[in-house]
Design a protein around this nucleic acid. Structure first.
Length: 459
RNA sequence: UCCCCAGUAGCUCAGUCGGCAGAGCAAGUGGCUGUUAACCACUAGGUCCGCGGUUCAAAUCCGUGCUGGGGAGCCA
């Protein structure tokens, strides 16, 4: 007999004479005549209640079943006379697949996130993390669905790159050289290395994506990204996933329109398709989340220039720990003030001083700012960072010279501005940060299965 | 990397002025019940994060290291 998943059973309209379910026991309540078990198979948040009565052949064995044990149950799906569930299964037979010993760490009580992080291999078996990772899966699918519907091409950019500098933080070195040999030589001899060149893990697929946007029109990447920054915060991990659309014939406004459409689409998809799992977070994790989600979906996001934002911050009379200063990057507290207190919704910040932004961003007509865009959201800060790209060869070369970047290294990038260059734009959205936003989870380590952070690569 | 806070039973935490190590939950045993974070009784459970110091006496005070959390920087 083929097993049926619990989410399908719970959605049943009628009782069913014979069903087979398999899963893990979340909790069990015994008496002499009955045993009630809550069975969860990960297909949905809810458990199905199993009633095993003393008539069962192996009823004596039922007694040894513990929280965390794996069992298979064949029986009848019937309406439950008890409160709290519509359906339950009256077991005809119970197969014990594996008994979890008494030292099973997950109890039928609330655990702290810190403790669950130490047992990351088991935490998906809890309601909260099960819900979080089902939502993560559904959101990954929704990203592909969104882009497929819009006619974007999905691009696989390299994980290993040879670019010395992509302008986005410290990189993880990739090498096949033996550490002993390197120590003996006193340096890394790249000529002897696998690629005969310095190699790193990617910090962004953007430059590659630009090449393909100028060929396929609209493309996006969605994959892992690596940053070797020694940053220890609730918003940073060394390995994370990023969505990076890149659009030909698109300017900064089009870029923002697209970003807003993406965030709205994904949030709406989560609310409609993961309502049960989302409810875990609106009900238990963050009482204000419902409002956040409504705002994300319904409100028009604010758009403001860097200069206006500085003015606004200066006029706010708000006491900041760090002084607001034109020409400098905004501090976290400034970003939070804008998104959380002033606008109370996502806000696009555009046209930053060229001095504090990377070489590839398009220089504005004022000659002082570039067509950069950050999307700031309440509680997270920067969710999206992007720009209209500099498509004019001379301007690009000037900016690279100014920043001391080697034009030889980027010869292929510059080529794209030589042959049929067109205005184009794109951005990167941190997938984990988006998940934090829609779940109210406050630590990024809790929205990725096995987080990598400085000094921690367990699991 | 910097600043702040914390570390006591499997988990969550209390522990007063330095004076015998505690509770709830979980676990084990027994009882009871169409139960549902079931309930009742009993039992067991400790390197008080490690190391060093002060003291007649340290979970408690001091130093140091480790681990975790919050914040900052960097960014997504």
């Amino acid at each position: 007999m083929k097993r049926i998943k619990i989410n399908r059973l719970l959605a049943s309209d009628t009782s069913i004479d014979k069903v087979l379910v398999k899963g893990w026991v979340r909790t069990k309540r015994d008496s002499k005549e009955f045993s009630f078990m809550e069975l969860n198979d990960g297909s949905c948040l809810k458990n199905i209640q199993i009633i095993a009565d003393s008539q069962l052949e192996n009823y004596s064995q039922i007694g040894v079943i513990t929280t965390g044990s794996a069992i298979g149950v064949e029986g009848r799906l019937v309406e439950s006379p008890g409160k709290g569930q519509k359906w339950e299964i009256h077991a005809d037979s119970v197969e014990i697949i594996n008994i979890a010993p008494e030292d099973y760490p997950l109890q039928k009580k609330r655990h702290s996130d810190e403790f669950l992080r130490t047992i990351a291999h088991l935490r998906a078996r809890t309601n909260k993390y099960g819900a979080a990772f089902r939502i993560r899966s559904e959101m990954a699918f929704a990203i592909h669905k969104f882009y497929n519907e819009k006619g974007f091409r999905y691009l696989h950019t390299p994980i290993i790159t040879g670019s010395d500098c992509e302008g986005a933080g410290e990189m993880f070195r990739v090498t096949s050289l033996e550490p002993d040999a390197v120590a003996k030589a006193g340096k890394m001899d790249f000529n002897q290395d696998f690629f005969a060149h310095e190699a790193n893990l990617t910090v962004s697929g953007q430059l590659s994506a630009e090449m393909f946007a100028l060929a396929l029109g609209d493309v996006y990447t969605f994959g892992p990204t690596f940053r070797a920054e020694n940053s220890n915060t609730s918003r940073h991990v060394a390995e994370f996933w990023m969505v990076e659309p890149e659009m030909a014939f698109c300017d900064l406004d089009g870029n923002m329109d697209h970003a807003e459409e993406l965030v709205k689409y994904l949030t709406l998809h989560a609310v409609t398709n993961c309502s049960e799992d989302i409810a875990v977070f609106t009900d238990f994790v963050d009482k204000g989340l419902k409002k956040v989600l409504d705002t994300l979906i319904q409100q028009e996001y604010a758009r403001i220039s860097y200069d206006d934002a500085i003015d606004l911050l200066l006029k706010s009379k708000k006491e900041f720990e760090y002084k607001v200063e034109s020409g400098k990057d905004l501090q976290s507290e400034h970003e939070r003030f804008l998104a959380e207190e002033y606008f109370k919704k996502p806000v696009f910040l555009i046209n930053y001083p060229e001095k504090i932004k990377p070489f590839y961003m398009r220089l504005n007509d004022d000659g002082r700012t570039v067509a950069a865009v950050d999307l700031l959201v309440p509680r997270i800060g920067e969710l999206i960072g992007g720009s209209q790209r500099e498509e004019r060869l001379e301007m690009l070369e000037q900016r690279m010279d100014k920043m001391g970047l080697s034009k030889e290294t980027y010869w292929w990038y510059l080529d794209s501005r030589r042959f049929g260059s067109v205005p184009h734009a794109g951005f990167g959205m941190g997938f984990e940060r988006f998940l934090m936003l829609i779940t109210g989870i406050t630590n990024i380590r809790d929205v990725i299965p096995f987080p990598r952070t400085p000094g921690n690569i367990d699991f």
